[in-house]
Design a protein around this nucleic acid. Sequence first.
RNA 1: GCGGCCAUAGCUCAGUUGGUUAGAGCACCUGAUUGUGAUUCAGGGGGUCGCGGGUUCGAGUCCCGUUGGCCGCCCCA
Length: 437
Amino acid sequence: MASFQTLPGFREFYPEDLARRNHVFRLWRQTATAFGFAEYDAPVLEPLDLYKAKSGDEIEAQLFSFTDKGGREVALRPEMTPTVCRLVGAKANALKRPIKWFSIAEFYRYERMQKGRGRCFNQFNADIFGEAGPEAEIELIALLVQCLTTFGLTEQDFYVRLSDRNLWFYYLEALGLDEPRIRGVLGAVDRYEKYGDEAFKGYTEQFGPLDAGIKAKVLAFLQIKSLAALEATLAALGGDKLTGRLADWRKLLGGLEAMGLARFIEVDLGVVRGLAYYTGFVFEAFDRKGELRALAGGGRYDDLVQKLGGPALPAVGFAIGDMTFSLLLEQRGLMPTFVSAPDVYCVIGGEAERRAAFADIQTLRAMGYRVDYPMKDVPFGKQFKAAAESGAKLALIYGADEIANSVVKIRDLATRSEREVPAAQLAETVRDFFSAS
RNA sequence: GCGGCCAUAGCUCAGUUGGUUAGAGCACCUGAUUGUGAUUCAGGGGGUCGCGGGUUCGAGUCCCGUUGGCCGCCCCA
């Protein structure tokens, strides 16, 4: 038993674990690239103020933060959004619009561990800057969907809930509420799914009971699950803001439908997302069975770049966490088992043969083949067994007889057939074998 | 931050009302086997029973504390 334990909530990646993680990262990266997103990265350690600027005590309590040797207050990054806003903000005027960027990075939050949540995790982040219209949401939600379907997940496995903080705001405004009350109601809406009527307790304490007529309308609005129902509800109210917003909704849903993604999307105004910086459309991806935490979440945050010192720049983004996502893939049997097998395994008679084999081993490795051999002299029988167990396709046999005749014996480990080739032709024979198979 | 359950070999787990030197399977290593395949047989390494304290003639077993894990609550950028 090791004396030194891994820090709580941190993960170690043994080769099989890392193979799975690499698989996930590789497909995410491939998908984002196909959508025309460019990859970036940034420091793991940031000034604490970058996160304090936009958030309260709760968030600070969950930061890994400390004072460095130069007396700076620093924190391990808990998310990518402030960082990417700074990167983009600093060069906003020099970057071609729209700015479509993604990253795959590690984040740290000092939280209690749970299923699908640790203190150290990876996220795929994708953001579009400089596009104020719902075209940006279309592109991002399409990317989100494909980041999941590329692993074999279907609409049976997950869905994306789509909502809109602006629409809520305009609607409550039209019902005659002022801004503090609107925020109070949105807080209740956020919790309504979980707590039912209890969710309004906080509002009542602060502002007194919500007018029964308004509350009924809020509850009805919250349960809206289609664009048609939305339009019907809002038709009576009219107003430029609401009419304009409905046009955005039609454009967004129409775009996603044209991309063939309608089956993944559910209008659900019950989603508000607690995070204060979201300003418009918000969306979250969940597994259909409802057993896991959210797979991904995102939305529009048009004010954040400016708040962090950059120019006014509209923005939309989302993130997928690797922990819940990997759990889902494993539950659905979509996480492949990775075997680490060489292409070629060398069977070597003894010291003298070993020297001859080394030259060929180096040649084949330089050609890009993965070649292994036993480090110590081992009886032939064991070596053949090792060759078979290694998963290699070919065994190369270097015995005294072969060396004497300047040949190498090649054994096809699948068919168990053997032949000898002149040592000089080994490289091309191996290449032909692998290019044919 | 709060609550429930749990902790014995690398893994999965036994371990009697508290009683000799803590076990099995799998995995790993060696040999049988000096040129041909997952078998078989024989052998081997590996444990301060999470850690610390207490009760006892005696603790893997009972009690307290602590650390860590799983699950839920809060939160979830």
